[in-house]
Design a protein around this nucleic acid. Structure first.
Length: 336
RNA sequence: GGGCAGGUGGCGGAGUGGUCAAUCGCAACAGACUGUAAAUCUGUCGCCUUCGGGCUACGUAGGUUCGAACCCUACCCUGCCCA
């Protein structure tokens, strides 16, 4: 019952290329909402094409207002005629929807779940304070879970020094060390995954027990999770079309630009779409992206979408919806 | 027409008489996931199975051998070179 007292939060999730943004924007318009992104890559400035940012989906900003006006139902571009303001109406199905946590940092800035959780919480609470409905939208399962499950992150952040030290140890030495520092963690930590093992040791070496720190807290929101997806073969086709579009829109140029300004080893460039292009350019600098590379991007995105679904599938609270109508019905019922 | 190289599991590609249902990579399928998560990692991967094993397989057809993907013969196909 106390759950009813919690502020309401809508979550729109699903694998890549399913039209989450479009749906979320439409729902935001309908329910007076604002969007908070839960996407680990769209936070980066300049990574637009490859992360499928599609900022135009959010509608007309105040700035672009004079360029697209509707007069008697007809759209006029850059009309030079002075139209009395009273006669100008923005297309009321296309007004701007505020979004948050997109384009917030440069690619050379470190980012992670804990940071995202902190920022997202702030944005969500601000939206609630403004009397609007927060809509969390994205495909990064962990980031969403951090908010909905109110994951408790250990006080120790990434530490370069300990990571350097750990580099020198072999896996078996690391396991031995963990056995000594936090034997309970051995039960659930995937020691074959170096990244996981290192992180756990990082926490333990800072004087904590990873097995005790890692827990879920009481929920902060009364949330409704809506999932959008497609049958695998259809989703793959959507992905393919999207990749083609990205290439046409200049993904290669975008990649080069980031490489130039931040260096090709910038962490966020380890993103599907960018990394394949970097590999290609390494072998054939200056050449036009070939079919093989485009195909690789498609395949890697298919695999990514599958991984996303693996994550979402075990979350039984997600209500998988087919369209905006179903979403609307569920939200109406939820926000009463 | 002649010479050379080669035909192996969905693809690439090892193997060159027994320990080969066949290393490995890719794809595919399934899964894990608490500070890199579009990342990272794990399992399965000829067919059947009561999980002991059984069956069919390395271009095709024969042969040698106790035993062949591996040796021999013929044929078919592919690539390169010479006509």
């Amino acid at each position: 019952m106390s759950k009813k007292k919690l502020p309401k939060l809508i979550v729109i999730l699903g694998p890549t290329a399913t039209g989450k943004t479009k749906l979320a924007v439409a729902l935001a318009r309908k329910f007076n909402g604002e969007i908070v992104s839960a996407d680990s890559r769209q936070v980066y400035k300049g990574m637009d094409i490859g992360t499928g940012k599609d900022l135009s989906e959010y509608g007309l900003s105040v700035m672009s207002f004079p360029l697209r006006i509707v007069v008697r139902g007809k759209l006029q571009r850059g009309s030079r005629k002075t139209i009395p303001r009273s006669r100008v109406t923005a297309r009321d199905d296309n007004f701007f929807v505020p979004y948050h946590l997109i384009n917030i940092i440069n690619p050379n800035t470190e980012f992670n779940v804990a940071k995202h959780k902190k920022l997202a919480l702030k944005e969500i609470n601000d939206i609630i304070r403004r009397g609007k409905l927060p809509i969390l939208v994205g495909g990064t399962g962990l980031y969403i879970s951090a908010i909905t499950d109110n994951l408790d992150f250990p006080a120790v952040g990434p530490d370069k020094k300990t990571r350097k030290k750990l580099e020198k140890l072999s896996t078996s030495e690391k396991i031995k060390l963990l056995k000594k520092l936090d034997p309970a963690a051995l039960k659930f930590v995937d020691v074959r995954n170096p990244r996981r093992l290192d992180r756990v040791l990082e926490v333990c070496l800072a004087g904590y027990k990873f097995s005790e720190l890692r827990k879920k807290n009481k929920p902060l929101f009364d949330y409704l999770q809506l999932g959008v997806t497609f049958q695998k073969n259809i989703l793959d086709k959507r992905i393919d079309a999207r990749v083609e579009k990205m290439i046409k829109n200049g993904l290669a140029e975008e990649t080069k630009k980031i490489m130039r300004t931040y260096g090709k080893n910038t962490a966020p460039l380890q993103t599907i779409g960018y990394k394949e292009i970097i590999d290609f350019l390494k072998n054939k600098p200056g050449q036009k992206i070939d079919l093989e590379t485009i195909n690789l991007i498609k395949i890697h995105t298919h695999q990514f979408a599958k991984r996303q679904m693996t994550w979402f599938k075990r979350n039984k609270k997600i209500k998988w919806i087919k369209n905006k109508k179903e979403a609307t019905i569920l939200i109406k019922r939820f926000i009463i």
